[in-house]
């Protein structure tokens, strides 16, 4: 048992016997009210999302999880296929559980995956990731307005709004939470 105020992103809770991962949590102090934590919890098996508001002093049931390094192999349109790097066990995670991750993960790359009772619960994507720009239109000539942007597509298929000077083949650093461009990466 822990207090709801101790919740962090990535922690796992047991709700009516089923594991849920904390995907978002923020603290709210409504005017003249006591402190609350508002969390978005996701079931890794169904992808179902719960919105819960707890008092920070409420007790919740956390579960002990372990992390393993796993290589992302490919997705077949229904599941992500992974391999544990320590024992080469292969396993699948339904696409529906982490639908948007297909644009964030790179084939062949190793990710940390959280397991509970040998079942994968969560895929941890680093906060900042370097992507290569696979598709980018050339900037329109004469468009010199400061702050002008365009949308490019990375090698993973992620669409990112970038400054117009970014060209195809260049590498960019992206905040994977907000999907926002951070900076150009020079070799």
């Amino acid at each position: 048992m822990i207090k709801a105020g101790q919740l962090e992103k990535g922690m796992a809770l047991l709700i009516k016997g089923a594991p849920y991962v904390v995907v978002e949590r923020e603290f709210v102090n409504p005017g003249k009210g006591s402190a609350f934590v508002r969390a978005k919890l996701k079931s890794p098996s169904t992808g179902q999302v719960l919105r819960e508001t707890m008092k920070t002093q409420d007790s919740v049931e956390d579960i002990t999880v372990e992390d393993h390094d796993c290589q992302y192999l490919y997705n077949d349109g229904e599941s992500y296929h992974f391999m544990k790097t320590d024992n080469f066990d292969q396993f699948e995670i339904p696409l529906a559980s982490f639908e948007d991750y297909q644009y964030l993960m790179k084939d062949g790359e190793t990710y940390r995956i959280t397991f509970w009772e040998n079942k994968p619960l969560d895929i941890i994507i680093p906060f900042k990731v370097i992507y290569e720009v696979a598709e980018a239109e050339d900037a329109i000539k004469g468009d010199t307005v400061t702050g002008a942007t365009k949308v490019v597509t990375t090698e993973t298929g992620l669409k990112v709004r970038v400054p117009i000077f970014i060209k195809q083949g260049e590498r960019i650093l992206v905040n994977t939470e907000t999907r926002e461009y951070l900076e150009r990466v020079n070799k």
Binding site: L41, E52, M54, K55, D58, S59, E61
Partner: peptide
């Protein structure tokens, strides 16, 4: 709040405001 354990609820009963 299905998340919150009943033990906690006994400790500090829910008020109208909360």
């Amino acid at each position: 709040s299905s998340v919150v354990s009943s033990a906690a609820a006994e400790h500090a009963p829910e008020t109208w405001e909360s």
